[in-house]
């Protein structure tokens, strides 16, 4: 990075750190922060979508749809995250490759399952074996987003389901008395009011999601915790120009500050959102706002 970095052994402390903190590996570390933030930014809305669909399905009048919603919520909530991440991702990847194999290589004769091996033709590989590493990483990233969204979607579905049931029955009956259809009642009366009941649960989920990102390395994505562990580990002078002892505690301290700052900002944002959502609602929070405005 800097011209004086050629021979780190001779540098004074300040310059040594300037060089050390700008090595290629450290850039990967900084990049990992963006990866984590991007993952959260994509996963949160997608998971909320899964949750909404799951909650709608679970309270549907059609029995098959209702069962589907309830089974989704029960199964995904019941399976440990780590098992889900190890099993489901590989299964999903294999399912995609199996479908592609069926479409692209119809005259393939060997069995797909050979002992423990999963063998599909080269053209069915997802992504292709010849694709650059960047494509593999992007594909892995979206598999991760999808998996996170399914897991957190199930929890969100349960929260939203509870939120929908918490809306006072009288509101829905009044809507029916005004001649609204089921669909109108749902979208115009139920959904706008349920958020205030669902938000505390959803904000918990958001906090847990922020902290769940180290599961990413199970999927082969190098997240910030992986890099902190890797960079902080003891480095001997044979393998690096910047030997140091066990510095993991400093790297993890940095992560601690990052996560605390991030969750604090989230808390503030969620509090503001809560204030907006309670406005005009028939809840104790809404009542407080009404009285404050009246006096």
């Amino acid at each position: 990075m800097f011209s004086y970095c050629a021979d780190p052994d001779t540098l004074d402390t300040m310059r040594w750190f300037a060089c050390y903190l700008t090595t290629g590996v450290h850039k990967s570390f900084y990049l990992a922060f963006f990866k984590v933030l991007l993952l959260l930014a994509i996963t949160a809305p997608v998971a909320l979508g899964f949750g909404f669909a799951g909650a709608m399905a679970a309270r549907s009048h059609l029995p098959p749809l209702r069962w589907l919603g309830k089974v989704y919520i029960a199964v995904v909530r019941g399976v440990p995250d780590i098992a889900f991440f190890l099993f489901f991702v590989i299964a999903l990847d294999q399912a995609v490759e199996y479908l592609r194999h069926r479409m692209l290589c119809p005259d393939w004769e060997q069995p797909i399952r050979q002992g423990a091996d999963f063998v599909v033709c080269q053209a069915a590989k997802m992504p292709l074996g010849t694709a650059p590493q960047f494509v593999h990483e992007t594909y892995g990233f979206f598999i991760a987003v999808f998996t996170f969204a399914i897991v957190f979607g199930a929890f969100a579905a349960n929260v939203l389901y509870g939120g929908m049931r918490a809306v006072p029955r009288a509101q829905l009956e009044t809507a029916a008395a005004y001649g609204m259809s089921q669909r109108q009642t749902f979208w115009r009366i139920l959904v706008p009011q349920m958020w205030v009941y669902a938000l505390p649960g959803l904000s918990n989920l958001w906090m847990v999601l922020i902290k769940a990102t180290p599961l990413l390395f199970l999927l082969g994505i190098e997240d910030i915790v992986y890099w902190a562990r890797e960079l902080g580990g003891t480095k001997t002078s044979r393998f690096t120009s910047y030997p140091h002892g066990d510095w993991r505690v400093w790297y993890f301290l940095f992560l601690l500050v990052f996560y605390l700052a991030f969750t604090r900002v989230s808390e503030i944002a969620l509090e503001r959102l809560m204030l907006r959502l309670t406005h005009g609602q028939a809840t104790s929070g809404g009542e407080v706002q009404r009285k404050a405005a009246a006096s």
Partner: peptide, 22 residues
């Protein structure tokens, strides 16, 4: 499809066998 790109898996945390350089 080309058959000749081989992906080599490693851990990257076990010097001197395999590690991540600067």
């Amino acid at each position: 499809a080309q058959d000749n790109t081989i992906r080599m898996g490693t851990e990257g945390a076990y010097p001197p066998y395999n590690f991540i350089n600067d």
